[in-house]
Amino acid sequence: MPFIATPDGTEIFYKDWGSGQPVVFSHGWPLSSDAWDTQLKLLADHGFRAIAHDRRGHGRSTQTWDGNTMDQYADDLGTLIDRLNLRDAILVGHSTGGGEVTRYMGRHGTSRVAKAVLVGAVPPLMLKTDANPEGTPKEAFDAIRAGLAADRSQFYRDLSAPFYGANRPGSTVSHGLRDQFWRLGMQVSLKAAYDCVAQFSETDFTEDLKRIDVPVLVAQGDDDQIVPIRAAAYKSVQLLKDAGLKVYPGASHGIHGAYEREFDADLLAFCRA
């Protein structure tokens, strides 16, 4: 299996499919690169080089005790991009992965980046504050940490319902998809999963978004129960220099079903443009 080693010795697993202009995918919490398989195949089938990695502590990458920070996630992504010598790359980030992509561009610049896609992404800030009243109260994230510490297996099973909108009337979410969420979540070390909650909820990406000088597609479902769209996509497009917004009516946080088919078409069109 392909790995790259970061300066602190962490082994980062990645998939590298197809050839052509590189499209690099960053996954959400608590998943891995496997969550992007449909999009990896789609892009590789259409003449792109599709790449996705497992964040440190997740999937097949090293389960480090330290380094579970947004800055380190961004630096790990930078190491992957540098080691593979990627140029003119398109970066795609979902949820926490959208934060990782945003922090990478804010921290390392865009010299290797052509454009980016943020889908259901956590920027600019998830946490409710006086300056961000649309955010989510800290108590909600404390409950996530408590659920992880008490019984993470059951917690992930329960979380898969709002993640994919399975708790909505008429939901067609399959048991298999929810099982996949649980399976990928259980591959994350407890320490990495626990630490990452603060990173995706409390990191302020406002200044990172302002620094991004490449075209960005901001996409999100308006029934996202995990990342409120009013605190995320609607605010991000106002901070970016060159952004387009796509809202998917009734769509959840997790990408699946009709939402996934529509997003895939939009992703491919954006990459080709």
Rank of each mutant, 00 (worst) to 15 (best):
S160N: 08
D223M: 09
G78D: 10
K246Q: 14
P169C: 10
G147V: 01
T102K: 06
L40R: 12
D266V: 05
G254H: 01
G9Y: 13
F13M: 05
P215L: 08
Y248A: 04
V188S: 11
G170V: 03
A243H: 07
A258M: 07
P124I: 06
L31A: 07
T102Y: 03
P137A: 06
K235I: 03
I4M: 09
I90L: 14
E134C: 05
A114E: 10
W36L: 08
E262N: 09
G176I: 05
R261T: 12
L209T: 01
D204S: 10
Y156I: 11
A166N: 07
S26P: 01
Q72G: 01
K41M: 09
D204N: 15
G109L: 11
S236A: 15
T129W: 11
L77E: 12
G176L: 09
V119T: 14
K241W: 02
W65T: 15
K115W: 02
S236D: 06
V247M: 04
G97E: 08
S174T: 15
E260A: 14
F25N: 09
M1Q: 13
R157I: 07
V24W: 00
Y259L: 07
V227Y: 01
P133Y: 08
V23A: 14
L91F: 13
L84W: 03
L77W: 05
G9K: 14
I81N: 01
A251K: 07
F270R: 04
P30K: 03
A44T: 05
L42F: 04
L184H: 03
A149Y: 04
D222I: 14
D264W: 01
W182S: 12
I144G: 00
F200L: 15
P30W: 05
A121T: 06
F141I: 12
I255Q: 00
D224A: 12
S236Q: 15
G78E: 04
A116K: 06
A166E: 07
K138F: 10
N132H: 15
G59H: 10
S201Y: 05
A5W: 02
F263P: 00
A114G: 08
I90A: 00
G28N: 10
P22T: 01
H94S: 11
R56S: 05
A5E: 15
P123C: 03
Y234S: 01
H108E: 05
T69Y: 09
K138V: 13
D37I: 13
Q63C: 06
K115P: 03
P215A: 08
L177E: 11
L127Q: 12
Q199P: 03
V92M: 04
R49W: 05
E207Y: 03
G257E: 03
F205G: 04
D76F: 07
Q63M: 10
I229L: 13
L268E: 07
V218I: 10
R87L: 04
K15F: 01
V92K: 04
G257W: 06
D224G: 13
E11H: 14
F141A: 10
D37M: 12
A52K: 07
L80S: 08
E207W: 02
G47T: 02
G78V: 00
A258T: 13
F13W: 12
A131N: 14
E207G: 03
L118A: 11
A161Q: 09
K138N: 08
F3A: 06
R152K: 11
R107H: 12
R178Q: 15
